[in-house]
Simulated assay, not measured.
Amino acid sequence: MNRLLAHPAAKPLVWTLLALPLAWLVWRAVADQLGANPAEALIRSLGDWTLRGLVLTLAITPLRQWTGWHQLLRHRRAIGVATFCYATLHWLAYGWLDQGFELDALLKDVAKRPFILVGTLAWLLLLPLAATSFNRAVKALGAKRWQALHKAVYAIAGLAILHFFWMRSGKHLYGEVAVYGSILAVLLGWRVQQAWRRRAQAGLPARAAGAPATAITAARGS
């Protein structure tokens, strides 16, 4: 699997797969196959793919460790950028199809409806992550600062789940919310466990370094 993930054709294939949902939505829109309320269907579908992209992006590192497929990391940036694109299209579709890009009406609606406010905040937090998703940005920020900034993706995912929950609560549809929330909880729990493990091991190098030295001394003495 690592060999396949590292193949030169893997990146174009990943980008193609990431673009397929958008292509399918565009085809359905052109063919008038989005149902009785096409605007709502398009907005919600783009939001669904944004949430799926967020979850998939967060799952890359755990999957690497659980499966040994370390070349997955080569494709995390593509998934993250695609997720930002879907989030941007989701927000633009809302601003255009729901509010007609009328700034006053748009601002009032965002302020009036909490789930739209939370979704907008999540999208705004994605902006600096997308802007620093390139190698030059990593070098400019430094690895530690870049990693600290991109940890905001967990807060963004939490806001996205809350946005999704409030949106579905109007119709009392909580099944998908529970699925995404559970997946996010597992991924976040794994991160917390890894952080605790690193802290626990932080004091080990000095003691571990002393153990071989004692063994060597004992061996020399014998």
Rank of each mutant, 00 (worst) to 15 (best):
R3N: 12
R3V: 08
A9R: 11
K11T: 11
P12T: 11
V14R: 01
L22Q: 02
W24K: 03
L25G: 07
W27N: 02
W27P: 00
W27V: 01
A31F: 04
Q33K: 13
N37W: 05
I43E: 03
S45E: 07
L46H: 05
L46C: 07
L46V: 05
L46P: 12
L51T: 06
L51I: 15
H75C: 07
R77Q: 09
I79W: 03
T83H: 04
F84G: 06
F84L: 12
H90P: 03
H90F: 03
G100I: 12
F101K: 09
A105H: 08
L106M: 14
K108A: 01
R113K: 11
R113Q: 13
P114W: 05
F115V: 09
G119P: 10
L124A: 13
L124H: 02
L125H: 05
L125R: 04
L125S: 04
L126Q: 00
L129T: 14
L129D: 15
A131H: 01
A131W: 04
T132F: 10
S133T: 13
N135T: 14
R136P: 00
K139L: 10
A143D: 13
K144A: 15
K144Y: 08
W146L: 02
L149W: 08
V153H: 09
A157W: 04
G158T: 05
L159S: 00
L162V: 14
F165R: 14
W166G: 01
M167V: 04
S169E: 04
G175A: 15
E176A: 14
E176V: 08
G181Y: 06
S182C: 12
L184V: 06
L184T: 07
W190T: 05
R191E: 06
W196F: 12
W196T: 02
R197Y: 05
R197N: 04
A200G: 15
L204M: 11
A206S: 13
A211C: 09
A211Y: 02
P212L: 11
P212C: 00
I216R: 08
G221A: 14
S222G: 09
